[in-house]
Design a protein around this nucleic acid. Sequence first.
RNA 1: GGGCGGUUAGCUCAACUGGCAGAGCGCCACCCUUACACGGUGGAUGUUACAGGUUCAAAUCCUGUACCGCCCACCA
Length: 925
Amino acid sequence: MPELEKNYDAPTVEGKWYREWLDKKLFHAEARRGGNPFTILMPPPNVTGILHMGHALNVTIQDILIRWRRMEGRNVLWMPGTDHAGIATQNVVERALRKEGKTRNDLGREAFLKKVWEWREQYGNTILQQLKKLGVSCDWDRLRFTMDEGLSGAVTEVFIRLYDKKLIYRGNYIINWCPRCHTALSDEESVHVDTRGKLYYVRYPLREDSGKHLVVATTRPETMLGDVAVAVNPGDERYRALIGKKLVLPVAEREIPVIADDFVDPEFGTGAVKVTPAHDPNDFAIGNRHGLQPLDIMRPDGKMNENAGQYAGADRFDCRRRLVEQLDAEGLLEKIEDHQHAVGHCYRCDTVVEPRLSLQWFVKMKPLAAPALEAVRSGKIEFIPERWNGVYLDWMENIRDWCISRQIWWGHRIPVFYCGACGNEWAARGAPGACPKCKSGNIRQDEDVLDTWFSSWLWPFSTFGWPEQNPDLKLYYPTDTLVTASEIIFFWVARMIMAGFEFMGELPFRKVYIHGTVRDNTGRKMSKSLGNSIDPQAIIKDFSADALRFSLMMVTATGQDVFLSNDKFEIGRNFLTKLWNAARFIQMSGKQIDDASPDAAGPEALALPMINDSGKGRAGQLVPPFVPVGQGFPALSLTPDEQFILARLDGTIAACAENLGKYRFNDYAKCVYDFVWHQFCDWHIEYVKLPLGSGDEARRRESLRIMHHVFAHILKLLHPLAPFVTEELWHKMGYGGEDETIQNAPWPVPLGCEQLARLGVDQRAVAYVEMKHELIRVCRNLRTDCDISSSAGVRYIIRPENDEAAAQLSADRDSIKALLRAEAFEVDRAAAPQKALNALSPLGAVFIPIEGLVDVEREIKKHADQLAKLAGSLAAIERKLNNADFVGKAPPEVVALQQERRREALAQSEKIRRVIDLLSGFHPG
RNA sequence: GGGCGGUUAGCUCAACUGGCAGAGCGCCACCCUUACACGGUGGAUGUUACAGGUUCAAAUCCUGUACCGCCCACCA
């Protein structure tokens, strides 16, 4: 057994065990293994990505689920991969080119794409390396990329199927256009940001009577150059007479009609709306209703085009400023008001999005949404926490068609071809040589590529080789739980569900666990631009990956946002150091035995489990308890404290399973934390120092064996949270052979009271130890109250409560004495509280018989205060019990509980009163 | 404009189906007790945002208010 270093040096991904996991393909799932599959898809990070806390939170949760299920013996597959992130990646590469003074057009499509692939070769794996440092145990051999050949094939296949079903169509519509990225965006990619803008009131003179004018209000005055009409509500009395009249559009000096449309809200602005069909979705609709020809006044780069007359070439915002000045100078600007409204921004570059009329490809979503809606409505797919069901359903019910074409180069090119000869348009796999209709070779492919999400939405099955049917796809689809953030419910989750039903005929996953957003401690979202992000790499360096994972889970309540600051990670670091030191303690104790009895089997043998968790036979089944260990050490009966720790361990095992099953990762982490620190370390290790230090060899070995049993279980319970250190300790403690990993150690199963009893765990002993702990706390308080230094030897006398307590205490005297570091601990049924400090415990009254140390007045006051407090709570209990409604309506067990409390409170008061009487007797007066 | 979440100890947050409001950090006192000072022992700290209501019983359920934060939305 390798000795543990005194200073805890956190194991890392560079360490021995992780490398071996990878070498041995421990994470590799195989269909032929069969069994009960458990699949998780890692949300593929962008190739351009670098690891941030959101990733860390996301993958830690998944890794916990995966390692837990792996230890349970499931056929586990965790699919990793990266996303080509069309616009984002293209932007990154273009930025690099710009530094060389070039644009993508200088290179041309082919050469540019070559550059992007080179970039991805060089930097695309950064995030994967970073993920490994966190200990994520995904199936690295299956790594996929959305631009891989297989996945690209799936994209083409899906496009063609939808195209043939007429669910994909091409048309001229108003889309969100990013003038910086030069591409269309989907509605989801345009993020609305509340902005303090201006509302400009502009006078449009009447043609017939230039002295009169109609005032329209607009937030984007530059678009007036594309106005083709002004609309008013047909019911609006103010304007009824103007309907059908002509106005002169200022600056452009064009004639435009006044039209009537129900869309116009008479309450807003002036009740008259300028109609600009080429630059506003509502106006586009109005224009269509009235047969008006749209007039495009802008270029793709956001500068005005030749239709803008004198403003041609001006940037849209520059144009706005100058145009307003001109209007003002001409007396056509009525007023400017402040106006709060939501403005769309490009989700990749934050540029203000321009609604723009253009020819794009769309997916008709309503038919796809139907089964996906049903799946969540019926509960076949569940969101956790539940409230996201509503968000999802709401979006799906109001789903709009999806704009999937992008005017960039990096991505899956739209597999549609056009014939220059006959005008034929068709979708095809591969590169056709000629038009299928007229056989002309004069064909060209559509220039656009598909939205990145058009490949991501196929991830649950494209990663398994779809459309090819194979054993992997059959076994591992559908997956189990999708773990992700709320930001991509619409982008990704909803679309995967739709694709799953459409192309696989089945849901892609059963559960969607939505975790919170990682924020800094002032509640702001962590982001590079704010400079408030905590770099997981730095945390790993300073605190270890295990500490990062453990701390994250400790502070993350289910589905709530996480507020982080550096010091939060001390929780995990301190805890894991504590664990390490507990291991050192056990190991040092083990060595003592080696030294003392050289013929005994080594400490490794001590780790023999008492309970059948070997993975063979029925889980949790008992093997004959207390298999003799080594030679000449017969099994002994368990001490009360050992029974106690085994009972608590069993409770912890049960609690872990329950919390994991409910995705309550913080409660899971907390219950292990509490058990390790406050049960095992605070009490059991302190307790066990006596038997381990005693000369009784058999007792020592037996105590040590229980320690190892409990500690091995702790490591297992902790492994999903802290994989590195638990693996390290698993081996260093000798629990696993050289080639065995804790990942394959069977997950502990709770035994329950009955089976525990067969092991020799008596609930009465468990109850006694609980009271013993309370007694020890009472004694320590007593000593503190009396200002006796903890190093001074103290003599305690206890007068036991009853015969049972007397027997238990007498048998356990030495242990209590040791835990108190007392000079003496005497059990005396006849002890009378002489001139002594005294206190009450569940097992009996305790005294420290030291004359002269007693401040009688203070003692009386102390007890009187206690009595008063007790009287208060007693009164509250009485009030309840005297309330006929309470007794009549509350459940019987709640009433019984109150009665029990009253009984206890009364008994306690009586005892305190007696003590006060006694103390008063000492009173000098 | 619609929807969702939050408001609990000095700070950051828990408290699953109503039944004695908890943890970590910080704070105070004492302690280098041979696993651990990234530690040990003990301690202090709450009108659960506010106002009503339901109930024997409310941090928890209902109604409303205030503030903070998200998401969605074509009122120019």
